[in-house]
Amino acid sequence: MIYAENILLCIAIPLVISLLFVRGDVRRYTAAFLFGMGVCLIAAYISGFLNLVSGMGENDTSVFLSPIVEELMKLMPLLFFIVLFTPEEHTLTMLAVAIGAGFATFENCCYILTSGAESFTFIMIRGLAVGVMHIVSILALAVWFIIAKHLQVFSFSSIIGGLSLSMVFHALYNLLVSEPGVSRNIGYLLPLLAAAGLYYLYRKLPHRL
């Protein structure tokens, strides 16, 4: 049993105070990072609730339902920023990265407090796989939104389309790492490969459309 709310408060308070002393992109990044941590806590509450309601068991809930909840929760602040502030392209990608990083950081903190931090290999896997995966899935969503805005096709269909891609990607990762053996190793590599592909796409695509 860990007290996730207390951990969130402990990490968030210095960041909230730092918001008073910074301006511009740094302030936006920090605020989005805090949003990311906040939605991570809410996603954990919802997943816990679904675990009880569905009776699927903790493991199956985290493999099948958590990706849906987590990606939906990460989309919310991003959509909030898009609808309310219509940010520029670079601001949108920065906010997406910050939300993903905040989410991954808080999730990692809770995970480490539960499972311990003795094993360096485990810590590296946790950071490079889950950490990168949360950033990649929301950044891919932001890149898709940028493309959709460029082509003036930013609509309900495109939002659901982008969201479903990030959900299935996340779910695929969870499914692969849920079983020991080769599949788990492939799962750990998946976010890094996706990050490389996304980096290539991000550098090429928006400027050509």
Partner: peptide
């Protein structure tokens, strides 16, 4: 199918992918 053969898949993200597929095709 490869990792958990012969077990019925519960509700998962791929169903949302299927719904999005229909929406995007319509679009």
């Amino acid at each position: 199918d490869l990792l958990r053969p012969e077990t019925r898949m519960p509700f998962a993200a791929n169903e949302i992918g299927e719904w999005a597929f229909f929406l995007l095709l319509a679009a």
